[in-house]
Amino acid sequence: MAFLKIAHLEKSFGTTRVVKDFDLEIERGEFVSLLGPSGCGKTTVLRMVAGFETPSSGAIIVDGKDIVGLRPNQRNIGMVFQAYALFPNLTVAENVAFGLKIKGTPAEQRDARVKEMLAMIGLPDLGGRYPFQLSGGQQQRVALARALAVQPQVLLLDEPLSALDAKIRVSLRTQIRDIQRELGITTIFVTHDQEEALSISDRIVVMNGGVAEQVGAPFEIYNRPATRFVAQFVGTLNLIEADVTLPETGTVRIGTTEISLGRPLKPGRVTLACRPEAVSLGLADGRPLVLHAEIGEVHFLGAVIRVQARAGRTTLSLDTFNRPDTPPPAAGDKVQVSISPADLLVLEA
């Protein structure tokens, strides 16, 4: 039995169904991300778990107990908000101590716990400051400490990084993940940033239109997207139009090249997709799909160079590693690019 189980969860505002038949099981200590564009229902799911929204139907079971009927303050769930939400009239230490005070923890234990939490987030000396005296990253760490101080069963993170600078975002997400692992706390993380979700999660739920499109580990989500939406939302994708010539062997024609994908296809046209890193410049063993192309734009991103190559009507993005001794390709160069059929995904229409 999973530690946190969401079953047949539904939410409608008026006649709009925002969350549709949502199921999810999370193991104790697991870090699960809800990923999707704004309006996909991910925040609504989180707010139903927190208790701020009442589900239209369905169950939310934590540790064997349905919590749908409980008020937020009875659920023993911690939450970190996008806009910090520290109490501005309380110092950092008082903010962290807030939940303990409500619980009636004796002052000595409370102080010890606050000290421990501040040390954990790496701000041991800032207990006396007020929130306005902290940077955004510091405030968000205090918010995390405040949520964790009461030892909640589940931690909810509602886009906690999206108000921060890019650099701090990366370092803070690592810190959040470290703390989460250390405490072994079951965590749901809501984000619209696919890179964030891929880097931090044990599993990802990709949501669209109130529905969970795919649930899986980051590797799976990225490399074997189950739906067209997942494939397009997570990472960059090249789309290649092809005609199916032999449905039973999965042979398709791309431009003038014919190639077998080794699995049966429906007759007609199909859209094939592949990641930029699956496309190579030049010929290579085991990559029988070869296209003649002309280099378009070249983006030098540092370790990686992203190149646009035009082959007939399709434009392909491809990534090559930077090598200090070799100059990058130049716009207008005539090149050959090769792809392995195993890296091609067939997108259902």
């Binding site: 927190a50 303050n73 309380l90 807030f98 409500i102």
Partner: peptide, 25 residues
């Protein structure tokens, strides 16, 4: 709104939220 929500997540009742957060502010 987040202040009220954060307070209730930490176990505070509506009255505790008003006494400890909203009224001081």
């Amino acid at each position: 709104r987040e202040w009220r929500e954060a307070a209730s997540m930490l176990g505070a009742t509506g009255w505790q939220y008003w006494r400890m957060v909203a009224l001081p502010i």
